[in-house]
Structures are given as C-alpha cells and as structure tokens.
C-alpha cells in the first residue's frame, strides 16, 4: 500500500532539500507520496522542475507560515 512520507528540509538551502528528496525517492516504493518541507523558496521552484524533468508526478505546492510543502509521487 502506498505510503506518505514527510521530508523535513527546513533550514537547508538549494539543492539540499532536493537531494534529501532524491535520497528518499530511491528507497521508497512506486506510488508513495513524499511531502518536502522547505523554507527555501528556490527549492519550492526547483523541486517541481526536477520532478517534471525526470518523470515523477508533481502533486502540489502550498505555503504555510513561510514553509513550502511540495508533494511528489514516485512513478517509476
């Protein structure tokens, strides 16, 4: 069954949160959803670009109190 995981990249800067996402993506199952937390706006822009480029599914981005929540689904 697909899981949802949170990756807390707060306090880091580009490309730190992206690299943390990729490390977890390598270990999780197809269909799993990963939500990256980041207070770095550059990562909020860059992570969806990366996801589209490599062919995973970009689900959503929302911002709450200066923290971006970027959700991605592993597709391959």
């Amino acid at each position: 069954m697909a899981e949802k995981r949170i990756i807390d990249g707060r306090g880091s800067f580009c490309p730190g949160p992206l690299m943390e996402l990729i490390a977890v993506l390598k270990m999780c199952e197809i269909g799993d959803e990963l939500e990256v937390l980041s207070n770095d706006k550059g990562s909020a822009n860059d992570i969806p670009e990366w996801v589209r480029k490599v062919g995973h599914e970009y689900v959503s981005t929302r911002e709450e109190a200066g923290v971006w929540h970027i959700t991605v689904r592993k597709t391959k």
């Binding site: 306090g11 880091s12 800067f13 490309p15 730190g16 690299m19 990729i22 490390a23 390598k26």
Partner: peptide
C-alpha cells in the same frame, strides 16, 4: 553568508552526486 545560512557543504553535494546520480 553561505556558512551563516547553513547551505549544504560542497563535499556533501559532491558525494551525493556520486551516490545518488
């Protein structure tokens, strides 16, 4: 500024380039 703001250090990024990419 990169040190003060806790940017990921360059050696970690190089290692990740090898391990993840």
């Amino acid at each position: 500024l990169m040190v003060q703001k806790n940017a990921p250090d360059f050696k970690t990024l190089f290692r990740q380039a090898v391990e993840l990419g």
